[in-house]
Design a protein around this nucleic acid. Sequence first.
DNA 1: GGCCAACGTGAACACTGTTCTCACCCCAGA
DNA 2: TCTGGGGTGAGAACAGTGTTCACGTTGGCC
Lengths: 246, 246
Amino acid sequence: MWHPVVMADDAAPPMLTAVLEVARRQLGEVGPTALSLRSIAREIGVVPSALYRYLPGREAILTQLIQTGYERLAAAVREAEEAVPRQDHLGRWLTIWRATRDWALAHPHEYALLYGTPVVGYAAPSSTIEPATAVVLMLARVAIEAHAAGARPAAETQPELAQELRDDARTIQDALPRLGVEAAMPSDPQLVLLVVDAWTTLFGAISFELFGHYERSITARGAHLEALAQRRAAELGIVAAAPSTG
Amino acid sequence: MWHPVVMADDAAPPMLTAVLEVARRQLGEVGPTALSLRSIAREIGVVPSALYRYLPGREAILTQLIQTGYERLAAAVREAEEAVPRQDHLGRWLTIWRATRDWALAHPHEYALLYGTPVVGYAAPSSTIEPATAVVLMLARVAIEAHAAGARPAAETQPELAQELRDDARTIQDALPRLGVEAAMPSDPQLVLLVVDAWTTLFGAISFELFGHYERSITARGAHLEALAQRRAAELGIVAAAPSTG
DNA sequence: GGCCAACGTGAACACTGTTCTCACCCCAGA
DNA sequence: TCTGGGGTGAGAACAGTGTTCACGTTGGCC
């Protein structure tokens, strides 16, 4: 059992913030598994055991980094997306994809901590799964607003869906308002599932790129992600807004 | 520098095979980063330094496990796929997806070693990237055979492709015969790129499932992967072969 | 002024990967 | 039959890790 410092946001001990600062800096250089508590203490100029006054152990540092990592990723993507005109749904959609990839390339080890092999144990603490939903929620918001503006999913990509999957879709749909997505959504479960599809593709592609699986096949990584984003947008019926002679 | 035992397939030292056997067994329990050379030596009943007669270090064990891991995955998927009638392209396609997921669920740590955060260093040795292509090659073969049988990609999912991406597609296409895929393929780059898309989706979804990102959203994981496979098949024009009253 | 709690130190333990020296043992050649 | 010699594994050692615990010091409050 461990009780000190309930990690309340108000008045965080300066040492704690120093630990997380140094930890994130070192994470930019060495990767999650190589991140060393002793090395962090060394850089702060303190003996390793001193950190145990503020943290229950090494895993807690990683958990904190995961949580703020999701928030930093979300902030970067949100900032990029908000610069695009609201009615340009395709532009917003593509921007989310690009900004996510840009952030991942700029912070590969931090990305690996979030989306690579879990290192804290195989069940993520619930405190880390809520901020993790930010990017998919942004995708969902764009898809919903595009739908409200008349976009319709391509009809031919509609296999018969298993009932349990329809139930998942409905549960997700019902949870959206609570997560800040004002969803006056059609009862069609296809929309949510297509968003989950796109979300999976986005991070699947970035992970493949960063983890070396495109090594001798796809070299035009940016263009490749762009094509994926376009295809997923097309499935959702999200098309270019500007005057296009199509 | 390190020279003994060039890892030739003929007459591998029994200790070496024992190491890899025990290593894979332990990998089934603890995960790649926790895999310990000392623990392996302990189980064999030998002192740690003894292993250095046969291996240059811990990373070499992981590299070996990666290589044979890809081969084991490929074997499992191939066995399942070969049980499906050749002309049932959709059935073969879906079987590849299911078999890959089944193997991943049965060997989560081994899957994490292959498709999670790289642990051997950020450039995979070239000996490990060739067997890694087996699954995507199987997807490609089915897509090509379906195409030869008349399947055509959906026309509307065709954004203008960047030239560099078309070049990648051509390079891949040219490499296929050398990799055992007898490809009398159309010059359309779309087909290869759609296969890469599907490949990315497949492992993206499995990684999301295993690494906990579907934790409170998608619970019907099997049905979900099935839907993804169906959608990717539809984009490639792979449809059910049997008499179906559409 | 004295007390108490928070703080950081230092030593220690149990691990890890890796290197090096040393003894053994078996087999080839004289 | 004796004698090397080479491959083999043991053992100790080094540097590093996460974690625990007992010990001083120090600063603020009564």
